[in-house]
Simulated scan of single mutants.
Amino acid sequence: MQTPSIKAKTRAALPRRTAIKYGLGMLVLGGLFGRTVAGSLADPKQEQEKEKEVMIDLFLPSGKIDKTVRLPRLVKSDADWRRQLSDISYQVARKAGTERPFTGKDWNNHQDGLYRCICCDTALFDSKTKFESGTGWPSFWQPISASNVNAESDSTFGMTRTAIACRLCDAHLGHVFDDGPKPTGLRYCMNSASMRFVARA
């Protein structure tokens, strides 16, 4: 794990990336899942400009790093994502939604294991860095690897935040804040719907 570089890499990622632009048609979905949806994380031009290959770290079921590989960035049609994901996972991971606090399957999960991307299975977080934030969302003080996540500026809803996405498939995961515990001082506030928990083997 790269504890000293997490905060630096998160901050450094922001100037290099174009700020996210959303249309005027932001929707707030109540009802069944109570999530907010702000449309796609990037417009078509931004999608074309994104790197076609990415370097990510692969992890064994034990949580130990296996190897670093270069892979083609995973891109699927909207129809394919809809077929693959549940409605809540689609709205959160592919449309930058947010599940209601205290409703996700993992906010109160205390089992030992890894949290992987619901879309592409990339390892994102280790339960060893999970902590009780009191927010109602799974919270971690660092990702399992800084190479496996991206940070982008998010100015929706009149706030300036840092959105976190899976590097391999661009699935929206949540946001990172600077009010977390030591050793990083960061709080990665994630959505359960964007991840799947796998017990450590």
Rank of each mutant, 00 (worst) to 15 (best):
T3Q: 11
I6K: 02
I6V: 15
I6F: 14
R17F: 07
R17G: 00
T18N: 07
A19N: 11
A19Y: 05
K21A: 03
G23I: 03
M26S: 09
V28E: 01
V28L: 05
L29S: 04
L29R: 09
G30H: 09
L32G: 00
L32E: 14
G34V: 10
R35M: 09
V37I: 14
A38E: 04
A38V: 14
G39H: 04
K45Y: 02
E47Q: 13
E47G: 00
E47T: 12
Q48D: 09
E51T: 13
K52S: 05
E53M: 14
V54S: 00
V54G: 02
M55E: 09
I56L: 08
L58H: 09
P61W: 06
K64P: 00
I65G: 05
I65N: 04
K67T: 12
T68K: 12
T68W: 07
V69Y: 05
L71T: 12
P72F: 02
P72G: 02
P72V: 06
R73P: 04
L74A: 02
K76P: 01
K76S: 01
K76C: 02
K76Y: 03
D78W: 10
D80A: 15
D80Y: 03
D80T: 13
R82D: 02
Q84I: 14
L85C: 10
D87K: 15
I88K: 00
S89T: 13
S89R: 06
V92L: 07
V92I: 15
A93F: 10
G97D: 06
T98N: 06
P101G: 08
P101I: 15
G113V: 13
G113I: 12
L114W: 11
Y115Q: 09
Y115T: 11
R116C: 01
R116G: 00
C117I: 15
I118H: 00
D121A: 12
T122L: 01
T122I: 12
K128R: 12
K128E: 04
E132V: 13
G134W: 15
G134Q: 12
T135S: 15
T135H: 08
S139R: 09
P143R: 06
P143L: 10
S145A: 10
S145C: 07
S145Q: 04
S147W: 13
V149Y: 01
E152H: 14
E152L: 15
D154N: 10
D154M: 09
S155R: 11
M159H: 08
T160E: 12
R161V: 04
A165L: 15
C166V: 14
R167G: 00
R167W: 08
L168E: 02
L168N: 06
C169Q: 02
D170S: 12
A171W: 08
A171Q: 07
A171E: 04
H175N: 03
V176E: 00
V176W: 10
F177C: 07
D178M: 11
R187G: 00
Y188L: 01
C189T: 11
S192N: 01
S192R: 04
A193Y: 02
F197E: 01
A199Q: 12
R200S: 03
